[in-house]
Amino acid sequence: MALMKNQTHISHFILLGLFNHTPLHLLLFSIIMVMFLVALSGNGLMILLINTDSRLHSPMYFFLSWLSVMDLMLISTIVPRMAIDYLLGHGSISFTGCGLQILFFLTLLGDECFLLAFMAYDRYVAISNPLRYSVVMSCRVCWLMVALCWLSGLVDGLIQAIYTLSFPYCGSQEIDHFFCDIPAVLKLACADTSLYQTMIYVCCVIMLLLPFSVISVSYLLIFVTVLRMHSAEGQKKAFATCSSHMAVVSLFYGAAMIAYMRPQTYHSSKQDKVVSAFYTMITPMLNPLIYSLRNKEVAGALKKLLGRCPCGGRQE
Rank of each mutant, 00 (worst) to 15 (best):
V69T: 07
A83F: 10
L67N: 00
Q101Y: 08
S58F: 00
L87R: 11
M73D: 06
I175Q: 05
L88G: 15
L106H: 07
T96D: 13
T193E: 10
R55L: 05
I127M: 14
Q160D: 11
C139I: 07
Q160P: 06
D71S: 10
L144S: 15
C170G: 15
T193L: 08
L154F: 05
W143E: 14
P183C: 09
S76T: 04
P59A: 06
I84S: 11
L56C: 02
L158E: 04
D122W: 00
W66C: 03
F179G: 01
E174W: 09
A191Y: 11
S76P: 02
V185E: 08
G99Y: 10
W143G: 11
I162Q: 10
V136E: 13
M82N: 05
Y121E: 09
R55K: 05
R81Y: 14
A117W: 01
S172F: 07
K187M: 13
L103H: 12
P130L: 07
P168L: 12
A126I: 00
C98Y: 01
W150A: 07
Y169N: 12
S68L: 02
G99S: 15
D122A: 11
V136P: 07
D176L: 06
P59V: 01
M70G: 03
A147P: 04
H57G: 06
S134E: 15
I78Y: 02
F178Y: 04
E112K: 02
I93V: 15
I162N: 08
P183T: 04
C142V: 02
W66R: 00
S58R: 01
M137E: 13
L74I: 02
V125E: 03
F104S: 03
C149Y: 01
L158F: 09
H90I: 10
